[in-house]
Design a protein around this nucleic acid. Structure first.
Length: 275
DNA sequence: ACTCGTGTTAGCTG
DNA sequence: TCAGCTAACACGAG
């Protein structure tokens, strides 16, 4: 489920929907499309085209053009906790669904079985569609999303920015990593993974970390993101399989411990990450 | 049957 | 001002 690596894959799928004429938009789900009224997104997009698929942290957005070729509104897309992007068409060669993680989107509880779980969709003139398939309804489609509220993207944040932002508060370091206004893209699993990789206690006050510790954390974060994008998602992390009551640390064999940090379930190595 | 959760946001409390 | 808590969303997993 989506953190930065999954969203980057979803963004690449959205690119399959670029430069195709939008003939219809289903924005009737008023929760997924909040705060818009039904028809608002449709009125803004129909006749136009998506021209770019971008991402910052876990948020995606498309630049658009209107029917007459002038700049259109931005379309924001967020996967929430379990959303998928599915794009179909335009020709028989591409008539399979594509989504951001493995598996066939049309088998099991997919859009053919549960069409009502496609909470937002765009239909193109070629007959294909771009859909936000989202069982739990925690995702979002909206016009003109506020991207300024997000901190720098976790995959590209500079060392200086990382030191200042993450280290700039007494909150637990894990809470800083999860705060999308500090840096964007890190979710609960990725946070546990990188803290484990550098053997830092998740509860350490962030501003008490040394510069070397912050630099090491950023380095581990970038490596974890790259590896997750390559391997298919954050669930491929080395310590993620250890989120079980009887689990031991994959590195040293000590028991894994469970608690709450930054309001989220947190697992850490009882020996290497400070009890 | 019942609890928990890989995300976000608004509103409230200390 | 900051940090932490709760509820809401609606379903699957254990």
């Amino acid at each position: 489920m989506p953190e930065l690596p999954e969203v980057e894959r979803a963004r690449q799928v959205v690119e399959l929907g670029l430069h195709r004429v939008i003939t219809e938009v289903d924005d009737r789900d008023t929760y997924e499309c909040r705060p818009h009224q039904p028809g608002e997104i449709a009125a803004a997009l129909v006749g136009g085209q998506l021209t770019e698929a971008n991402r910052k942290g876990k948020s995606m957005w498309c630049e658009t053009v209107t029917a007459d070729g002038s700049v259109g509104p931005r379309l924001g897309l967020h996967l929430g906790m379990g959303g998928h992007i599915i794009v179909t068409g335009p020709s028989a060669d591409h008539a399979c669904g594509q989504r951001h993680s493995g598996g066939d989107p049309f088998v099991g509880a997919g859009p053919l079985d549960k069409p009502e779980w496609t909470r937002f969709s765009i239909t193109f003139g070629d007959g294909g569609q771009l859909g936000l398939f989202d069982k739990r309804r925690l995702g979002r489609a909206r016009l003109e999303p506020d991207l300024d509220a997000l901190g720098p993207d976790a995959a590209t944040i500079t060392r200086a920015e990382f030191r200042a932002r993450v280290g700039g508060s007494a909150a637990p370091v894990k809470a800083r990593l999860l705060d999308q206004a500090v840096l964007s893209g890190v979710g609960n699993l990725l946070a546990d993974e990188v803290l484990w990789r550098v053997a830092l206690a998740p509860t350490r006050p962030a501003k008490r970390l040394s510069t070397a510790e912050l630099d090491g954390l950023r380095r581990a974060l970038r490596a974890a993101i790259r590896s997750a994008i390559r391997l298919g998602g954050v669930h491929t992390g080395a310590v993620i399989g250890s989120r079980r009551a009887d689990a031991t640390c994959p590195r040293c064999g000590a028991p894994m411990r469970r608690g709450t940090v930054g309001g989220r379930t947190t697992w850490w190595c009882s020996a290497e990450q400070g009890g």
